Amino acid sequence: MSFFDDLRNLDRNNVGHWPKSIKGFFAFLIVAVILFLGWWFQISVQQEDLERAEQKEVGLRADFVKKQAQVVNLAAYEKQLEDMTDELQQMINQLPGKTEMPKLILEISQAALGAGITNELFQPGPEVMKGFYAEKPIQLRMVGTYHEFGSFISKVASLPRVVILTMHDVSLRPSTAKPGKAGTTAGTLTLEGTVKTYRYMDGDEIAEFESANAPKGAKATGGK
């Protein structure tokens, strides 16, 4: 009798008298089911954890390579930062100081007059502290020709100190007349608005500014 005939003729109520081949088959089937369920609920989860760990390892390796390159180049970065800091300090030192600011504003006004420009309005405003520098707004209204304004810019650029002038809400329009000058008014322009010039702040001013703008908790800590 073949295995399949034994399988068709099984007596489900008398398992103990089943042929050994049938018993072995079902024993193998039960073991296979148990192993499959164990793999499904345990090993597959562990495989997913392993895949995540491998992906994390790839990310950590890439991060390590990146940080290793940064460490290798750290000395070069520090030197570059030091050079940039020195250059910035040199540029700041070329700006006028607090005591030089009044003279500088006078020189700017005189440069305009020397270029032939008429200062209808030249009114410096209060300084505004910005951390390591201060800005000085100047309201102005100047009347002159294109070439006179060019000469004015050239004179300002030739001053001993570095002068930075930034324009805010400035308009340049044709002028109908130039007070105090005879002859034709063709090509005369009126420059009107606000310009800002800048100076560096000394150590005491910077410390005072930082103290005044520090958070209340930081002030209290620093005062102990």
Rank of each mutant, 00 (worst) to 15 (best):
N9Y: 07
V71D: 11
E135I: 12
Q94N: 12
T118R: 11
S211N: 08
G131S: 13
M167G: 14
D5V: 06
G116C: 12
A177K: 15
W39A: 12
K23T: 10
F64I: 10
S211C: 02
F3T: 03
G114W: 14
S158R: 09
L121R: 13
Q90V: 07
A62W: 07
F36T: 13
E127M: 09
E210L: 10
E51F: 02
Q47D: 02
I34H: 06
A111M: 03
L140K: 01
L106G: 08
N73H: 09
F28I: 04
E51H: 02
F152A: 14
G223A: 15
E78S: 09
V71K: 15
T166L: 00
A157G: 02
F132R: 11
V195T: 07
T99Y: 01
A207D: 10
K20H: 13
H168I: 03
E87A: 15
K67E: 01
P102F: 00
G97Y: 00
P137E: 06
L10D: 01
L106T: 13
F132W: 06
I153F: 04
R199I: 05
K20T: 05
V58Y: 05
Q89C: 04
A115F: 14
A62H: 08
F26M: 12
R199D: 01
T194E: 05
S211G: 07
G183D: 12
D5T: 08
Q123F: 01
M1T: 04
M142Q: 03
E78L: 10
E100W: 00
F149P: 07
V71H: 13
L29F: 09
S109Y: 06
D83Q: 15
L29T: 11
V143R: 05
K216H: 07
K181M: 08
L50S: 15
T185Q: 10
A69Y: 05
I22H: 03
G97E: 05
A207K: 15
K181L: 09
P102W: 04
L88F: 04
N73T: 14
E208A: 15
Y77P: 07
D86P: 01
R141F: 02
K219Q: 07
R52L: 04
K23L: 10
W39C: 12
G59F: 12
A134H: 00
E192Y: 05
A182W: 05
V65S: 13
E78C: 09
I22D: 11
V163S: 07
T194Y: 00
T184V: 11
G193D: 03
E192W: 13
W18R: 07
G24Q: 14
A75C: 04
K103G: 07
F28G: 14
M201A: 05
K136E: 09
Q94I: 00
A53P: 03
Q139Y: 14
V156Y: 08
P102K: 08
T194N: 02
P174A: 14
M201W: 01
D49F: 03
R8Y: 08
N9M: 04
V33P: 03
S2Y: 03
S175N: 06
G187R: 12
N13P: 01
K56E: 15
R141L: 02
I105A: 05
T85Q: 15
F152M: 13
L60E: 11
V31D: 01
L10A: 12
V65E: 15
A177D: 10
K178V: 06
K103Y: 00
I108T: 11
F149T: 10
R52Y: 04
Q94L: 08
E192P: 02
R12T: 10
E54V: 04
F122C: 09
L121P: 00
A134F: 01
K219D: 03
G187F: 04
